[in-house]
Write a protein that binds this DNA or RNA. Structure first.
Lengths: 158, 158
DNA sequence: TTCGCTTCCTTGACTCATTCAAGAAAAGGC
DNA sequence: GCCTTTTCTTGAATGAGTCAAGGAAGCGAA
């Protein structure tokens, strides 16, 4: 228990200090929760944090997530039709596969090296900072279900 | 006025019929509004529709937008942190430039021909149907403001 | 043109993620 | 340990979007 907690706290604590943020147990817990639950939505983060700090307010979690996003310790992604989701993997240029059926999100490395699709055919005069690529489709499980049920609809069971 | 209205109604009407949808004045007006206001959010569409049909309900606009999206007459996009936005240009494989400062959205053609970034380095077993690419940056106006104010912050004036 | 079935629209209430605001509590430099 | 500043708690509010029921309109057939 204790060693588990220590393992979780040491890295987030160091990360907070490196970013010149005050180290509060709420922030440490939020950062650890995002580490443990990749692509978690805010509600999942709140539940995870409350396993360690039962009395934490949802506002503290929202504030922490915003602050951590601002300094770049976590990244916020929001596929169409989804609430905000957070991930700890940052800095590398990776993108996301999203399952249309079960909403599973999976990381994928960039297809074309470091700066993948960072070159639109015509940039309309924009100064481009970042390319965000989302692949929509069916995850392996849902694809199998759809195939075995003989249609592209997600299968209910069997 | 009248000819303007006719010009707007004839194309949407035909499009609705081709998609086997009932032609209602609400749907015609919604489709025309999306044509006239590329990347409009729902509120903008409602306002535009009410210039023609002052009594239209917001629910009718929501329903129409959903139906039109379902049959593929319009496309719904939702950049992170933005509400749903709709566009009439569909079928081609184009992507979007979004200005971080003023939220302007501009279409860009696909960088790599027809199926641009449709090949992630590792597909994790997903059956991929579509790649959605969003380029984040600064539009020409905001880039100029930022440069002339000597920082990357959006300039307030001057 | 009228009839009748089906789909669509209006009305009004509701959900839920997210934000706002004010005061209490905690972090961290001295 | 003290004091200032930042952060957290509490509680209410906002706003995009959804749900549900009944009335209205589209459109194919007669």
């Amino acid at each position: 228990m204790a060693e588990n907690k220590d393992r979780h706290e040491s890295e987030p604590t160091a990360a907070l200090r490196e970013s010149s943020l005050r180290v509060t147990k709420q922030r440490v817990a939020v950062l650890a929760a995002v580490c443990d639950h990749q692509h978690a939505d805010t509600e999942t983060v709140i539940r995870a944090v409350r396993e360690i700090l039962p009395e934490v307010s949802h506002q503290a979690v929202y504030d922490s997530l915003h602050t951590l996003t601002e300094v770049g310790l976590v990244r916020c992604i929001q596929p169409s039709g989804s609430v905000a989701r957070y991930e700890r993997r940052i800095g590398d240029n990776h993108h996301h596969l999203v399952c249309r059926s079960c909403n599973l999100i999976v990381d994928v490395d960039c297809a074309v090296g470091q700066a993948p699709c960072l070159t639109p055919s015509h940039d309309a005069g924009f100064v481009i900072e970042q390319a965000e690529v989302t692949f929509w489709g069916l995850c392996p499980d849902c694809a199998v279900s759809a195939a075995s049920s003989g249609s592209t609809e997600p299968a209910s069971a069997v």
